[in-house]
Design a protein around this nucleic acid. Structure first.
Length: 482
RNA sequence: GCCUCAUUAGCUCAGUCGGUUAGAGCGGCGGACUGUUAAUCCGUAGGUCCAAGGUUCAAGUCCUUGAUGAGGCGCCA
């Protein structure tokens, strides 16, 4: 008999038909009721067993975590917790699960404990929900861009360009660590390495995406990205997934519209397609907040928070305007900021971003036109503006509550001379990036793009506070388990 | 990298002022139970108190160092 997925059974409720279901035992109550889950839905199917029909040896093996198959008739449930159930006529044990050795228990377990057993944590309701939502979001992102005529572009994971300045990189080499070949002046001789030059894992596909956009018009990347920074926070990973659209003939305003549309689209998609999983995570958060003091509890539930982002326009303001707000803010006047806001030109600290997003505007914020001195070389230089003390670039950062920066982007500097001058000022070797500069020599055009940290998006939508809990096997300093 | 806090049973945690035999709930195991829903009821086992040094008549408790974890900061997405 063909196997039926539990999600389909619960949706179609085919009372009276014979079915075969397969999954893992979540509970076996009263020596009679099996709660079975196969991953297709957060809901369990109740399988009812009449002990007189089965030998004791089989029933003995129906333990929490065991993989079983059950054949039987779909009937209306007499119990209150579910509409239908399967009255079992046959049970197959596929895989036993010894409760004395199985690390998971049918009870609440901490995220920290589960993180140490990441190979098994998919089997908890929480992580199954997180990873189903993660999938849905990845799909929604592809759908969003595809429906708008964007091309999905695969940029290289191994790169030789180390001039982007996006962060510390992981070296990729086949040279022996001991006795690496040396040049005459004693440096490691990378001409003998696999690629005949130093190579690293990519920190961004943006520069390559720009090349694609100069012919395909609208492209995006969605792939793994690596940073060898020694970052120990709830928002950083050494290996994460990034989405980087790049659009020809677009300016900063178009870029902001695209980012805001995309974020609202995927959040709306999750609300519409992942309601059951979001409910599980929302209930989890409510439960967790009960142990917190009143003033630390969030004002909105998870789905309320998501609806709020979908229903409200993001607040847009310039860096210069943000500095004015922060300077005149209560916490700044009262000396509550660890880093007082004094003048124009320095980067905002996370406490300042949090104040703007969570206290002042109480919604997502897009900050634009940052001082040129604190931003990357490829960002387009603005014309001097009245009331702005120094040179700025057409950058934009989107700040989300609880997450901070979720998107960073800019209109790119398309003018060859201005770009070359900026690279010289910032000591970025032109010869390493001749291919990038070529786009500005041959048919250059205004264009813009941004980078979205996928895990930070998943964090926001699932409400998980630690980024290590929204990627299956997190990589961070001191940890590459599994 | 910096700062703060933590580490006691399989898990989550108590453990008073340094005092004699380290506790609970859940989970496990054994039993009962054919309409349960975090099932329930009865019984039961389970400990290198993170590690190494030190102070003391006496250390789970105090001190030093280290390991690991969590949170915050920096770097950013």
């Amino acid at each position: 008999m063909k196997r039926t997925k539990i999600a389909e059974l619960l949706r179609t409720e085919p009372i009276g038909t014979e079915v075969l279901v397969k999954g893992w035992v979540k509970a076996f109550r009263n020596n009679q009721f099996i709660a079975l889950n196969d991953g297709s839905t957060p809901h369990n199917l109740q399988v009812v067993v009449d002990f007189e029909q089965f030998d004791a040896a089989t029933l003995e093996r129906i333990k929490f975590g065991a993989a079983i198959g059950a054949g039987g008739t779909v009937v209306e449930s007499q119990g209150k917790g579910q509409k239908i159930e399967v009255k079992a006529s046959a049970i197959t044990i596929y895989g036993d699960c010894n409760p004395e050795e199985f690390p998971l228990q049918p009870k609440k377990q901490t995220l920290e404990f589960l993180r140490e057993h990441a190979h098994l944590r998919f089997r908890t309701n929480t992580f199954a929900a997180v990873f189903r939502i993660r999938h849905a979001l990845a799909y929604a992102i592809h759908k969003f861009f595809n429906d708008r005529g964007f091309y999905y572009m695969h940029t290289p994971i191994i790169t030789a360009s180390d001039a982007e300045g996006a962060g510390e990189m992981f070296r990729v080499t086949t040279l022996p660590l001991e006795n690496a070949p040396r040049t005459e002046i004693g440096e490691i001789d990378f001409s003998q390495d696999f690629f005949a030059r130093p190579t690293n894992l990519t920190v961004s596909g943006q520069l390559e995406a720009e090349l694609g956009a100069m012919a395909l018009g609208e492209v995006y990347t969605f792939g793994p990205t690596f940073r060898a920074e020694n970052s120990n926070t709830t928002r950083h990973l050494a290996e994460f997934w990034m989405i980087e659209p790049e659009v020809a003939f677009a300016d900063l305003g178009d870029n902001m519209n695209l980012a805001e549309d995309m974020l609202q689209y995927v959040i709306r998609y999750a609300l519409e397609h992942c309601a059951d999983d979001l409910k599980i995570l929302e209930d989890r958060l409510i439960e967790e907040e009960k142990s917190k003091p009143q003033d630390q509890r969030s004002e909105m539930s998870l789905t309320e928070k998501l609806r709020f982002v979908v229903d409200n326009q993001f607040e847009r303001l310039t860096y210069t305007e943000a500095i004015e707000i922060l300077k005149n803010s209560n916490p700044n006047k009262k000396g509550k900021f660890q880093f007082p806001v004094e003048g124009w030109g320095t980067d905002l600290q996370s406490e300042h971003e949090r104040y703007l997003v969570e206290k002042h505007f109480k919604k997502p914020v897009i900050l634009t036109n940052y001082p040129a001195a604190i931003k990357a070389f490829y960002m387009r230089q603005d014309e001097p503006a009245e009331g702005v003390p120094g040179p700025t670039v057409s950058a934009m950062d989107i700040l989300f509550p609880g997450i901070g920066e979720i998107v960073g982007g800019s209109q790119r500097e398309e003018r060859y001379d201005r770009l070359v001058q900026r690279m010289r000022d910032m000591h970025i070797p032109e010869k390493d990036l001749y291919w990038y500069l070529d786009t500005r020599r041959f048919g250059s055009c205004p264009h813009a793009g941004f980078g979205l940290g996928f895990e930070r998006l998943v964090q926001f939508i699932t409400g998980m506070t630690n980024i290590r809990d929204v990627i299956a096997f997190p990589r961070y300093p001191g940890n590459a388990e599994f």
